[in-house]
Design a protein around this nucleic acid. Structure first.
Length: 180
DNA sequence: TGCACGATGAAC
DNA sequence: TTCATCGTGCAC
Protein backbone atom coordinates (compact mmCIF):
# COMPACT_ATOMS: atom_id res chain seq x y z
CA UNK A 1 0.00 0.00 0.00
CA UNK A 2 1.21 3.56 -0.68
CA UNK A 3 2.36 5.90 2.08
CA UNK A 4 -0.84 7.91 1.73
CA UNK A 5 -2.88 4.86 2.77
CA UNK A 6 -1.33 4.97 6.24
CA UNK A 7 -1.30 8.74 6.49
CA UNK A 8 -5.00 8.90 7.37
CA UNK A 9 -7.42 8.54 10.25
CA UNK A 10 -6.39 5.48 12.29
CA UNK A 11 -9.87 3.97 12.55
CA UNK A 12 -10.24 4.21 8.79
CA UNK A 13 -6.86 2.54 8.26
CA UNK A 14 -7.72 -0.25 10.72
CA UNK A 15 -10.97 -1.01 8.88
CA UNK A 16 -9.39 -0.86 5.45
CA UNK A 17 -6.50 -3.10 6.46
CA UNK A 18 -9.00 -5.95 6.74
CA UNK A 19 -8.66 -8.11 3.65
CA UNK A 20 -5.19 -6.85 2.73
CA UNK A 21 -2.12 -9.07 2.65
CA UNK A 22 0.82 -8.88 5.04
CA UNK A 23 3.98 -10.08 3.31
CA UNK A 24 7.29 -10.86 5.01
CA UNK A 25 10.32 -12.28 3.24
CA UNK A 26 12.98 -13.80 5.49
CA UNK A 27 15.61 -16.48 4.91
CA UNK A 28 14.52 -16.54 1.29
CA UNK A 29 10.97 -17.52 2.20
CA UNK A 30 7.98 -15.33 1.42
CA UNK A 31 5.23 -15.71 4.02
CA UNK A 32 1.82 -14.17 3.40
CA UNK A 33 -1.24 -13.76 5.60
CA UNK A 34 -4.52 -11.98 4.97
CA UNK A 35 -5.38 -9.52 7.73
CA UNK A 36 -8.77 -10.41 9.24
CA UNK A 37 -8.64 -8.61 12.63
CA UNK A 38 -7.07 -5.33 13.78
CA UNK A 39 -7.28 -2.76 16.56
CA UNK A 40 -6.88 1.03 16.39
CA UNK A 41 -4.76 2.85 18.98
CA UNK A 42 -5.49 6.51 18.57
CA UNK A 43 -2.65 8.42 20.21
CA UNK A 44 -1.47 9.92 23.53
CA UNK A 45 -5.03 10.76 24.61
CA UNK A 46 -6.03 7.10 24.16
CA UNK A 47 -5.16 5.60 27.56
CA UNK A 48 -4.88 2.11 26.07
CA UNK A 49 -2.15 3.21 23.64
CA UNK A 50 1.52 2.88 24.52
CA UNK A 51 1.96 6.47 23.40
CA UNK A 52 -0.28 7.60 26.29
CA UNK A 53 2.85 7.74 28.47
CA UNK A 54 4.58 10.04 26.03
CA UNK A 55 7.51 9.52 23.74
CA UNK A 56 9.86 6.86 25.12
CA UNK A 57 12.62 4.72 23.67
CA UNK A 58 10.14 1.94 22.97
CA UNK A 59 7.32 4.04 21.55
CA UNK A 60 9.30 6.54 19.49
CA UNK A 61 8.38 4.66 16.30
CA UNK A 62 4.70 5.43 16.97
CA UNK A 63 5.59 9.13 16.86
CA UNK A 64 7.39 8.74 13.56
CA UNK A 65 6.13 8.83 9.97
CA UNK A 66 3.26 6.58 8.80
CA UNK A 67 3.77 3.28 7.02
CA UNK A 68 6.38 1.91 9.41
CA UNK A 69 6.24 -1.18 11.64
CA UNK A 70 6.04 -0.80 15.41
CA UNK A 71 7.04 -4.20 16.83
CA UNK A 72 7.48 -4.79 20.55
CA UNK A 73 7.95 -7.69 22.95
CA UNK A 74 5.03 -8.48 25.23
CA UNK A 75 4.98 -10.71 28.33
CA UNK A 76 8.59 -11.57 27.70
CA UNK A 77 7.73 -14.10 25.02
CA UNK A 78 5.51 -12.77 22.26
CA UNK A 79 5.80 -9.97 19.77
CA UNK A 80 3.07 -7.61 18.63
CA UNK A 81 3.01 -6.07 15.15
CA UNK A 82 1.58 -2.61 14.57
CA UNK A 83 1.31 -0.31 11.58
CA UNK A 84 2.08 3.35 12.31
CA UNK A 85 -0.62 5.69 11.00
CA UNK A 86 -1.25 9.42 10.55
CA UNK A 87 1.34 12.18 10.02
CA UNK A 88 4.69 12.22 11.78
CA UNK A 89 4.17 13.52 15.30
CA UNK A 90 0.78 11.84 15.74
CA UNK A 91 1.53 8.71 17.82
CA UNK A 92 -1.17 6.37 16.52
CA UNK A 93 -1.02 2.81 15.19
CA UNK A 94 -3.02 -0.27 14.24
CA UNK A 95 -2.33 -3.58 16.01
CA UNK A 96 -2.65 -6.62 13.74
CA UNK A 97 -4.51 -9.28 15.73
CA UNK A 98 -5.17 -12.14 13.33
CA UNK A 99 -4.30 -13.41 9.87
CA UNK A 100 -5.72 -15.97 7.49
CA UNK A 101 -2.79 -18.11 6.23
CA UNK A 102 -2.13 -17.65 2.50
CA UNK A 103 1.41 -18.77 1.69
CA UNK A 104 4.23 -20.49 3.65
CA UNK A 105 2.54 -19.95 6.99
CA UNK A 106 3.21 -22.58 9.65
CA UNK A 107 1.40 -22.59 12.96
CA UNK A 108 -1.59 -20.64 14.18
CA UNK A 109 -2.18 -16.99 13.35
CA UNK A 110 -5.09 -16.24 15.68
CA UNK A 111 -3.87 -13.54 18.04
CA UNK A 112 -1.13 -10.89 17.85
CA UNK A 113 1.57 -13.06 19.42
CA UNK A 114 0.87 -16.10 17.29
CA UNK A 115 0.70 -14.20 14.01
CA UNK A 116 4.12 -12.68 14.66
CA UNK A 117 5.57 -16.10 15.43
CA UNK A 118 4.04 -17.61 12.27
CA UNK A 119 5.32 -14.82 10.01
CA UNK A 120 8.72 -14.64 11.72
CA UNK A 121 8.18 -11.08 12.91
CA UNK A 122 10.28 -9.90 15.85
CA UNK A 123 11.84 -6.74 17.28
CA UNK A 124 14.46 -6.63 14.56
CA UNK A 125 11.66 -5.34 12.34
CA UNK A 126 10.76 -2.50 14.69
CA UNK A 127 10.86 0.74 12.73
CA UNK A 128 11.03 -1.08 9.40
CA UNK A 129 9.55 0.84 6.48
CA UNK A 130 6.53 -1.02 5.11
CA UNK A 131 7.21 0.52 1.71
CA UNK A 132 9.98 -2.00 1.20
CA UNK A 133 10.30 -5.22 -0.76
CA UNK A 134 10.78 -7.64 2.15
CA UNK A 135 8.11 -6.48 4.59
CA UNK A 136 4.99 -4.79 3.28
CA UNK A 137 1.22 -4.87 2.91
CA UNK A 138 -0.46 -5.52 -0.42
CA UNK A 139 -4.00 -4.66 -1.47
CA UNK A 140 -6.68 -7.34 -1.22
CA UNK A 141 -9.81 -7.95 -3.20
CA UNK A 142 -12.98 -5.97 -2.63
CA UNK A 143 -14.72 -7.05 0.58
CA UNK A 144 -18.09 -7.45 -1.04
CA UNK A 145 -20.58 -9.18 1.22
CA UNK A 146 -18.22 -9.20 4.19
CA UNK A 147 -19.55 -7.34 7.16
CA UNK A 148 -17.01 -5.67 9.46
CA UNK A 149 -17.70 -6.26 13.15
CA UNK A 150 -16.81 -3.61 15.77
CA UNK A 151 -15.89 -4.70 19.30
CA UNK A 152 -13.99 -3.37 22.33
CA UNK A 153 -10.25 -3.98 22.23
CA UNK A 154 -8.72 -6.97 24.00
CA UNK A 155 -6.59 -6.79 27.14
CA UNK A 156 -6.93 -3.06 27.85
CA UNK A 157 -9.30 -3.13 30.84
CA UNK A 158 -6.97 -0.75 32.68
CA UNK A 159 -7.79 2.04 30.22
CA UNK A 160 -11.08 3.11 31.80
CA UNK A 161 -13.63 4.44 29.32
CA UNK A 162 -11.17 3.90 26.50
CA UNK A 163 -11.42 0.17 27.10
CA UNK A 164 -15.07 0.28 26.06
CA UNK A 165 -14.56 2.08 22.76
CA UNK A 166 -15.34 -0.08 19.73
CA UNK A 167 -11.87 0.02 18.19
CA UNK A 168 -11.39 -3.65 17.33
CA UNK A 169 -12.47 -4.67 13.85
CA UNK A 170 -12.75 -8.05 12.21
CA UNK A 171 -14.35 -9.81 9.28
CA UNK A 172 -17.60 -11.33 10.46
CA UNK A 173 -17.62 -15.10 10.31
CA UNK A 174 -13.95 -15.47 9.42
CA UNK A 175 -12.63 -18.60 11.17
CA UNK A 176 -9.21 -17.09 11.80
CA UNK A 177 -10.40 -14.22 14.03
CA UNK A 178 -8.86 -14.56 17.51
CA UNK A 179 -11.94 -13.80 19.61
CA UNK A 180 -15.20 -13.70 17.57
C1' DT B 1 20.24 0.15 40.17
C1' DG B 2 15.94 -2.21 41.28
C1' DC B 3 11.36 -3.72 40.39
C1' DA B 4 6.42 -4.09 38.95
C1' DC B 5 3.93 -5.24 35.05
C1' DG B 6 2.07 -6.01 30.32
C1' DA B 7 -2.08 -4.45 23.28
C1' DT B 8 -0.48 -12.95 25.20
C1' DG B 9 -1.23 -17.81 24.97
C1' DA B 10 -1.59 -22.25 26.95
C1' DA B 11 -2.31 -25.29 30.65
C1' DC B 12 -4.95 -26.56 34.60
C1' DT C 1 -7.39 -19.06 37.15
C1' DT C 2 -2.48 -19.49 36.94
C1' DC C 3 1.93 -19.31 34.93
C1' DA C 4 5.96 -18.60 31.65
C1' DT C 5 9.40 -14.87 30.81
C1' DC C 6 11.90 -10.27 30.02
C1' DG C 7 12.32 -5.47 28.25
C1' DT C 8 10.57 -1.10 29.45
C1' DG C 9 9.57 2.75 32.32
C1' DC C 10 9.75 4.89 36.42
C1' DA C 11 10.70 5.00 41.25
C1' DC C 12 14.46 5.45 44.44
Amino acid sequence: MPRAFYDRDTVLVARELLGTYLVHVSDGVRRIGRIVEAEAYLGPHDLAAHSARGRTERTKVMFGPPGHAYVYLIYGMYHCMNVVTQPEGVAAAVLLRALEPVQNVEGRTQGPGLLCRALRIDRRLNGHDLLSDDFFIAAGEELQGFRIVKRPRIGVEYAGRWARRLLRFYLQGNPFVSQP
